[in-house]
Design a protein around this nucleic acid. Structure first.
Lengths: 180, 180
DNA sequence: GCGTCCATGTAATTCGTTACATGATTCG
DNA sequence: CGAATCATGTAACGAATTACATGGACGC
């Protein structure tokens, strides 16, 4: 459902082949949405059938031809309409919460280990985000409108990781019997 | 994949019928994991085939018989092993981030509206969580081990909602041209 | 020579959603 | 008298994951 809009959102700023899109989902966009190339090609066919995007075959020498897709006027309209429709919230489906829920089954030690591993993952992710912030968004106030929007998605990521780490510290302190 | 472990996690603390599980996924557990009753019954069959759970038919008068499932020793072992296996992180897949990514397509006004709607959803969810905190976890330090774990999942929810609201305020202030 | 990049697909399987179906009981 | 609750399922469909497949170009 929403994968189609994620693809359209990428195509807003640049026309892409399926391969290009897969790379985007593997990079920056991948921090908040992922899709395999199989999903992408299937979705591109559907979007073209609906007339929301238009593909053009670009012949290449020495490598396979590619089909570059761009948004149609219809596609832009649909995207605008979707942005203005209310969203809903959905459960996070985080493994760590399921593990905690079954916490009675294991030693507190095991839970603490799981929490530490969780914290480490999010610390790593935070470093990735902070690297991007330094490299591309050193002066947030002086950005174009669209760059400001991208900066905000990064801010969401940074805040989220900080919150995960903060919760984790709180949880470890709360459970650890070795602490005062 | 993980739905099976979510079901096992619920069965740790109490034996349940499929119907009972559906209610759990519709209530407290539903804040971080959801499943329809169709998914649940399918998964219960698979788990029983694997020998991780065991069903017992309970005859009832005046209503349909039910099958109550409980964890087997094997199931407990699998659950313990899963808790101790490292988890991975997955993208949040939040619509609002896709909307921002395509932000160049619409008036800032439209984005601000989307952000306000997003903030409202999370404010409502926060109130739900805080109600639960007051009703069931007034004195977190005096809880059993398993209740402490459940309290931590609630804390995660509360912190998450607060962070979403905080980010939203930051984003609105950053984008709103009417502000200084 | 071996791995990586480019570029696109098919096939199989599992996971998730929607719709349809049944039938007694209890509450307002 | 109608709606909600209890209790379980089948069927169909769509979405996502995993595996398999091809084949030339370029760098180490």
């Amino acid at each position: 459902m929403s994968l189609s809009y994620a693809i359209l959102a990428i195509l807003v700023s640049e026309s892409c082949s399926g391969y290009d899109l897969a790379k985007q989902f593997d990079g920056s966009v991948g921090y908040f949405w992922t899709a395999s190339h199989q999903q992408i090609y299937r979705e591109l066919n559907r979007l073209e059938q609906r007339g929301w995007i238009e593909g053009e075959v670009v012949p290449q020498s020495g490598r396979p031809n590619k089909t570059v897709y761009q948004l149609t006027a219809r596609g832009k309209q649909e995207m605008r309409a979707w942005i203005d429709r209310p969203s809903t919230i959905s459960p996070s489906k985080e493994d760590i919460l399921v593990k905690l829920f079954a916490g009675a089954l294991v030693e507190p030690q095991v839970l603490l280990r799981a929490l530490q591993q969780y914290r480490q993952l999010h610390q790593q992710q935070l470093q990735v985000y902070e690297g991007i912030a330094q490299d591309h968004f050193a002066h947030p106030e002086h950005l174009s409108q669209s760059a400001k929007c991208q900066y905000l998605t990064l801010r969401k990521g940074i805040r989220y990781e900080l919150d995960c780490i903060g919760w984790c510290n709180e949880a470890i302190a709360f459970l650890d019997p070795a602490l005062p």
